Amino acid sequence: MSAAVQALRAGDLLILPTETVYGLAADAGNAAAVARIFEAKGRPRFNPLISHVFDAAAAEAIAVFDDTARALADAFWPGPLTIVAASRPGAVCDLARAGLDSVAVRVPGHPVAREVLAAFGGPVVAPSANRSGRPSPTILADAVEETGRFAAAALDGGACAVGVESTVVSVLEGGVALLRPGAVTREQIEGLVGGLHDDAQGHRSPGRQTTHYAPDAPVRIEATAAGDGEILLGFGPGVGEARWSLSPAGDLREAAANLFRLLREADRERPTGIAVAPVPGTGLGEAINDRLRRAAGFVG
């Protein structure tokens, strides 16, 4: 653990487990370190990065929260929700915010991430530890395979419990907008704050490229069967082979946790393509389908 914190303080990169996916982490206030993340990921443009902090008080040190933001933080932190709010000056470098006047912040729930954040004492950016556009890593080995050569240290937190990136909401302009679906669902957020505003601020959120989370093999969604040379990722009882099922029981949480791992494992078989059976779009299924549409090259 001390080596991990020392790496951050030295301006080096760290592979960090969270409950969502493994991140490639750096000191959010160190522009040179943040630039190394973009270089390591081959990120095609400077999208804003999420600043991870230990608690809500640390979040309010870098972001301006209103009562709605505090209500969201109280309900869902620590956990897989990112809040985009007006930025306070100083703690998060311009590059990490992509030059915007807003900052994306969350309090992760993974105990290893929380221990690092407590010891480091400042915000840490940690986008997924994959090359840009590739499926996010949910186990340490996949993270190391993707970007390990750029990291000075790596921490093993086991398999990520959630398996898809955090939900991102904006609390700017007097309302709440859903910028990226995730494990905290639209229904949960609406149950707390009421109706959501239209998403007109997608540029403030990471993970919004047209093609994203994609393996090398082409992805075909809403598939009822595998074509020649394809692997079918099934969902629900009796759909496809058990080995390649996102969830044989049709459980959305299980499907989310398995999504990126199975995309990677299928890709290693060098198929002509990866077909994915229909997944319901309600609840957590909204986030799963968002990732699948982007993996297939469609804007969600």
Rank of each mutant, 00 (worst) to 15 (best):
M1G: 15
S2D: 15
A4S: 15
V5N: 13
L8A: 11
D12Q: 15
D12P: 01
P17R: 14
V21M: 14
Y22V: 06
A26V: 13
A26W: 08
A33K: 02
R36P: 01
E39N: 06
K41N: 10
I50Q: 10
H52A: 05
A56F: 11
A57Q: 15
A59R: 06
I62C: 03
I62T: 08
V64A: 13
D66N: 14
A71E: 13
L72A: 04
A73G: 09
A75Y: 01
F76I: 00
P78D: 11
P78C: 11
P80F: 01
T82A: 07
I83E: 14
A85R: 04
A86C: 03
S87L: 02
R88Y: 05
P89C: 05
P89V: 05
G90I: 12
G90K: 02
V92L: 08
D94I: 01
L95W: 10
R97T: 01
L100H: 10
V105C: 06
P108L: 03
G109Y: 09
G109C: 04
H110K: 00
H110A: 01
V112K: 00
E115K: 02
E115H: 00
G122C: 00
V124A: 00
R131I: 12
R134Q: 12
S136T: 01
S136E: 11
S136L: 07
P137G: 02
I139H: 05
T147S: 00
F150C: 02
A153L: 09
A153I: 03
A153V: 12
A154H: 07
G158M: 14
A161G: 10
V162S: 01
T167C: 10
V168K: 09
S170A: 07
V171L: 11
L172D: 15
G175I: 03
V176I: 05
R180N: 08
R180C: 05
A183Q: 09
A183N: 09
T185M: 06
R186Q: 11
R186K: 13
E187H: 08
Q188N: 09
L192I: 14
L196M: 04
L196T: 05
D198E: 15
P206R: 08
P206G: 07
G207D: 02
Q209V: 02
T210I: 13
T211P: 01
Y213N: 05
Y213K: 06
D216E: 15
A217D: 08
V219K: 00
I221R: 13
I221H: 11
A223V: 02
T224I: 03
G227Y: 07
D228S: 09
I231R: 01
G234N: 10
P237W: 06
P237M: 07
P237N: 12
G238L: 12
R243K: 11
S245G: 09
L246D: 06
L246M: 13
S247R: 10
G250A: 04
L252M: 08
L252N: 11
L252D: 14
A255I: 04
A256C: 07
A256E: 10
A257D: 10
A257N: 10
A257T: 08
L259N: 06
A266G: 03
D267Q: 04
R268Q: 13
R270E: 11
R270C: 08
A277G: 04
A277F: 03
P280E: 04
G283K: 08
E286I: 13
E286K: 14
I288K: 01
R293D: 12
R294W: 05
A295K: 00
F298P: 02
